[in-house]
Amino acid sequence: MASSHNKDEKIIYVGDSRVPQKNHESVPRDYMAYPGKSEVFIPNFLLKEWMVASVFMVGFLVLILVDPAPLGEIADPTNAQFIPMPDWYFLFLYQMLKYPYLANKFVVFGTIVIPTIAFGALTLAPFLDTGKERRFYKRPISTGLMLLSIAAIIFLTNVSWMHYEEELEAKGLKPEKHATGGGKKKEEKMGVMAKDHPGFAVFKKATCVSCHGADMKGMSAAGIPALLGVGDKLDQAAIMNIIKNGSENKKMSAQYDSNINNGITPDEMNQLAEWLSKQKKTP
């Protein structure tokens, strides 16, 4: 058979279950079940679908060009100010957890029970709603439940978003949209300057270290500022003023006297202030 040179003869694999021996007549199947005009998938109908897709794609590309994808600052687990927000399509689930009976002791209702019932019921819809009727206005129960769920989703999402915006405003924050490119690198390169200055030795034995830290990075979570680069903002006199009288927002109390009592001389305190004023980001 395979040795046949007759071109018209089709090779037939006998006894091979993978290729059924069938005489295909490639005739389009009828859609007679549906009255009215039907049309062939390729090219007529697909052309219409692709036209819709083209319009959709142009809109999509315009959206992308108008609003670039956001990228916030690199994740910082110590950032206590940040308000966690899931992606918008999880907001309604997230919002549910803020209501009593769905939170705290009963949180399992909000996180597991309700979503499981909702998604479970939706998944099993064909087995719960077994009537023959397909028109939505003739199946009030399933339609009603669905409309109710949609209303609830829209309501919860909206409440959640409003709440988020209020919180942002209260904290005076703006959503991080774009990372401030070089900022991170500058901070990394910023270190303790002028380590051979006598003020550095004073800093290490004075009370400063207990809060601002030996690395001078402060504690952002507790509102204690870093001293790195402090010389950019304050001069020697202003630093001395804070050491003597405490900070303007009263978070830091006057430190001068207690250090003098600990055996640091006024001269050394001046060296300390002078050294701190030399802490600049840009040498």
Binding site: S26, R29, Y34, G36, K37, S38, V40, F41, I42
Partner: peptide
């Protein structure tokens, strides 16, 4: 895939 007919009510 190509030759099946698509009914009017989805067009």
């Amino acid at each position: 895939i190509a030759d099946h007919e698509v009914p009017e009510h989805v067009n």
